[in-house]
Structure formats: structure tokens, C-alpha cells
Design a protein around this nucleic acid. Structure first.
Length: 460
RNA sequence: GGCGCGGUGGCAGAGUGGUUAUGCAGCGGACUGCAACUCCGUUAACGCCGGUUCGAUUCCGACCCGCGCCUCCA
């Protein structure tokens, strides 16, 4: 039985898909006006693992992750850059796909874009107006009337009165209530726009997700996910719009990832304390970044720091070290390790607990190797690779992992040559020379590992 | 102010009403020409104060501290 923490009920619930064997999931993706940062990676990887695990357990997962390719920030940035907004968004979408590929993030089943759902968006707004959940204001905007939807606040546990009391919401003259939000924004002169019954304009931020989610997955679907800062108002508004329009439950399970922090503060665009994925990948191999994120539970916050990445690096090194020079068995039957791994993942995708199973398997492998039980070692290696795959880890050739360093001071050929020289020196019992060679390599970031089979190397 | 989450050994990070998670780091030993890798052993924790209980890090209450959302943000 798989249990998932549902933000709506604030507890873990047994997961029962609407349709047996099938899972329909929507995750809020990027607004493509800048490069992805680590916070995006957090969400991307969290739901990548969810998808991988559910598929591993036999579910047919229909994973939809949208791209927001029209909004105020995009228009502003494009203008600053002196390029068209489509040039900007195309560039950023391409960059995002590169980042994802490097981090081993599987493509979603569908990746709808807001600009290709304008018809659906307009249709939904029309229904909302017909049902008196929305109104066209004098300024050309169309607003959702929050007071008209009685379930408003059920996701974020906020009361309308409290929201109004806080009153940091945008008080626009045209709104009937300060908490009302735009479904359609009237275009200013010269702005990109689409024609509508209420005048030329563009969709509001929230309506696009309602239109794309229901358009791709139906009025009701199983899982909706996203970052922690989308819970309110974005997801709350999605519920209001969708349920008001369809009269049906929008989503069964709401999942939210924890924030990525830097120096105890949330990494965010507005604080300017964010690190883009590509910046980080200049310093650390992608699998280490992935390991770092997966080594804490998806709902808890993680602190980005050099020390934490370094630790992830050392730990992942241990995992790959176990696989080094071993050819995993063709088919290793599922056993106790798989059962333990599943038990951890069944409990709200408890990846830190699942990783302990990986470490136990590593210990098995190392013991088998030490005692020269090659078949057992290869069988355990197969288990390790199989379980690692569910987390998107350990799929590389170990040598490739160890030798693909950024320190390009020495080529692989030069390293091999020095290792040969050291081998000869050791044969001649000239240990001073052998150690000199080893130190020379170490000074250039190359660590040697001697074993019965010979000497291997890695970039440290 | 409202709502929500959290405080675990040097660090990271799970979990449990009673039996040392796990990893990194440290320490001792084995292996090694010496190291590295690996193995064996080992040190070390549950914010504070009450309550419930035979027994609480785990349940309940208060308190302190930190974080997030309430405004665009994954």
C-alpha cells in the first residue's frame, strides 16, 4: 500500500488512483523567463522520483508538466533584452531541457504550453462568467469572484476574512473584492495579446494551469504537485477556478515539495540568493546534485551549501566504488532489499530511508568481493543498480563517473602513462619514485586505488 | 497578526512508547612497501518545562527558538 501526504487533508493517505493501474499527475512547471535554479531542480527531481517509483510499481503514469510561456515577467524581460517574447521563451525552454537531461530527469508525458491553450482558457473563463463566478470589469480585465466560491481556502487553510485583514493583496479599483484575481488581463497598447469577448488581452497566471490540467487529464485527476510557494495563492486559485467551472473535484492528492535554502533563507528570485542549475553543474557533476536532493525527504527543506554537496560527493563515491570493476548479473530476483526499499518508498516516497537500503547492499557487495564470492557480488550489484534507477542514480559506468572530472590538468592518457611508470617503479621496489608519481597525480586531483586487479584512478 | 512546518550525536538525515537507523567526519585495528579503497570494532543525540505511562526522543500541554506562506517566486 502506497501512502502519500496530502496537503489538502494534512495527513498521509492511502493512494488509490481513480482508475486502477493508472495515475494522472499534473505538476506546475517553469515560467520560462530565466534559467532554472536549484529550487526548480528540487521539484523536478521530486516528481521525477515519484513518477519513476510509481512506474516501477506497475502504474501507468500520465505525467503532465506545463510551461508558462506568457506572463508579465516574460514580457518585461524580453523587452529588457530587446528580443521578442517567443525568442526568450524558446531559448529558456531549450536551456531547461538541457538542465533536465543532465540531471537525469525523465521527460513528462505531456508538456503543454500556456500559449497553445488560449482557446481552452477562454472557454473556461466564459463558463465561469456564465455561472457568475467571474465578472468582466470596466478596465477590460476579467476577475474571479472569490466570494462566490464557498470552498475558497480549503487547501491553504486560510480564511477569506484573514486574507482581507492582512490586505497585502493588490487592491485594484476594478475588483469587487481585494482577494479577487485576474483570469484575463487586458493588453496595454503594443503588448502581445489574443482576441477575446472581453477585449484583447492575455490569460492570468492561475487559469492557464486549470485549463491545461483539466484539458490534458480531465476534470478530476489523481495528483497535483508543485513547489512550496505555489500552495497559495496559485493552487488555491486553481481549485477555485476548476471546481467552479466543472462542478467536480479537481484533484485527489496535493503534493508540495520543501524549499531549498541558502544560509537558512529560502532560495528565491525575489531574494536574489538563487543558484542556477548550470552554475552548480560547473562545480559539481549532475549526479551529485541529484544525490544531494534525493538524500533528504521531498517535503523537508534542504540547505544548499558547498559542504553538503561535498558530502554528497563522498557518499556517492562510496556507492560507485562498490560497483567498480563488477559486471552486474543479468537478472537478479527481487529479494529482501527490494522489499525494504519498497517499504520505504511506499511511505510517502521516503528516499532517505530508501537510500539506507542502497548502503546495505553496498556493504553486501564489498563483503562478497572481499571474500571473493563473485557471483553473489554481481547479483548484489544488479540489485544496487536496479534500486538506484528508481532514484535516477547509479546508472553510469563507474569508470565514467570517477574519471569525468572537471580538473582537466591531465588527460586520461597522461594519467595512464604515469600509472605505468609507477607500476614499474614499484616492481623495482623503488618506492620513493612510486610515491613521487602518486603525489604528483594527487596534486593534480587524481587519486589512485590499488587492488588485486591493478591500479585504478579517479578524480577527487 | 492569521495559517502551516520544524528543532535528533561534530555535520547531514530517517525513525520509534521499552531493544545503539544510515551516511560523512573522528578514533582503534586489519589489509597495504606506505597510502588510498575495503573490512572489523568504536565514540556520540533526541530544544526547554510539566503531564500521561511501569517506561517518552517518540503521546498530550505550555514555553523558547528557527523557517515558510499570507505579494511575483518551484
Amino acid at each position: 500500500m502506497i501512502r502519500i501526504y496530502n496537503t489538502l487533508s494534512q495527513r498521509k493517505e492511502e493512494f488509490k488512483p481513480l482508475e486502477a493501474g493508472k495515475v494522472r499527475m499534473y505538476v506546475c512547471g517553469m515560467t520560462v523567463y530565466d534559467f532554472c535554479h536549484l529550487g526548480h531542480a528540487r521539484v523536478l527531481i521530486a516528481f521525477d522520483v515519484v513518477t519513476r517509483y510509481l512506474r516501477h510499481r506497475g502504474f501507468d503514469v500520465h505525467y503532465v508538466r506545463n510551461i508558462t510561456d506568457i506572463d508579465d515577467k516574460i514580457l518585461r524581460r524580453a523587452e529588457e533584452n530587446g528580443e521578442t517574447f517567443t525568442a526568450l521563451t524558446e531559448r529558456m525552454i531549450e536551456a531547461m531541457h538541457e538542465d533536465e537531461a543532465k540531471l537525469g530527469i525523465l521527460s513528462p508525458t505531456e508538456e503543454p504550453r500556456a500559449t497553445s491553450f488560449i482557446d481552452e482558457i477562454l472557454a473556461m473563463i466564459r463558463v465561469l462568467i456564465q455561472k457568475d463566478y467571474a465578472y468582466a470589469a470596466d478596465n477590460g480585465d476579467v476577475y474571479f469572484s472569490v466570494n462566490a466560491f464557498k470552498g475558497y481556502g480549503k487547501l491553504s487553510k486560510k480564511k477569506l476574512e484573514d486574507l482581507l485583514a492582512g490586505a497585502r493583496v493588490d487592491i485594484a479599483e476594478a475588483k469587487r473584492s481585494p482577494a479577487d484575481f485576474a483570469l484575463w488581463k487586458a493588453a496595454k497598447a503594443g503588448e502581445v495579446s489574443w482576441p477575446s469577448p472581453w477585449g484583447d488581452g492575455r490569460p492570468g497566471w492561475h487559469i492557464e494551469c486549470s485549463a491545461m490540467a483539466t484539458g490534458c487529464l480531465g476534470n478530476t485527476f489523481d495528483i497535483h504537485g508543485g513547489g512550496p510557494d505555489l500552495l497559495f495563492p496559485h493552487h488555491e486559485n486553481e481549485i477555485a477556478q476548476s471546481e467552479a467551472a466543472t462542478g467536480e473535484t479537481f484533484v485527489k492528492v496535493w503534493m508540495h515539495a520543501g524549499a531549498v535554502r541558502v544560509n537558512k533563507e529560502k532560495m528565491s528570485k525575489s531574494l536574489g540568493n538563487f543558484f542556477t542549475i548550470r552554475e552548480i553543474l560547473e562545480k559539481y557533476p549532475p549526479e551529485i546534485v541529484r544525490y544531494f536532493l534525493v538524500s533528504s525527504h521531498y517535503r523537508s527543506q534542504v540547505d544548499y551549501s558547498e559542504e553538503n554537496l561535498e558530502e554528497a560527493s563522498r557518499t556517492l563515491t562510496r556507492l560507485y566504488q562498490a560497483l567498480r570493476g563488477l559486471v552486474p548479473s543479468k537478472d537478479a530476483p527481487e529479494g529482501e532489499s527490494d522489499a525494504l526499499f519498497h517499504a520505504a518508498m511506499d511511505d510517502d516516497f521516503n528516499t532517505p530511508e530508501a537510500i539506507t537500503v542502497l548502503h546495505a547492499v553496498v556493504s553486501d557487495i564489498n563483503l562478497h568481493r572481499r571474500e571473493r564470492r563473485d557471483e553473489e557480488a554481481r547479483a548484489s550489484a544488479a540489485v544496487l543498480v536496479r534500486l538506484g534507477k528508481i532514484l535516477g542514480l547509479l546508472q553510469q559506468d563507474p569508470e565514467a563517473f570517477f574519471q569525468a572530472g572537471s580538473s582537466e590538468s591531465l588527460s586520461a592518457d597522461e594519467i595512464e602513462r604515469l600509472i605505468e611508470a609507477r607500476k614499474q617503479a614499484r616492481k623495482d621496489r623503488n618506492f620513493a619514485e612510486a610515491d613521487r608519481v602518486r603525489d604528483e597525480l594527487a596534486s593534480k586531483g587524481v587519486i589512485l586505488d590499488d587492488s588485486r586487479e591493478g591500479t585504478s584512478w579517479r578524480r577527487g
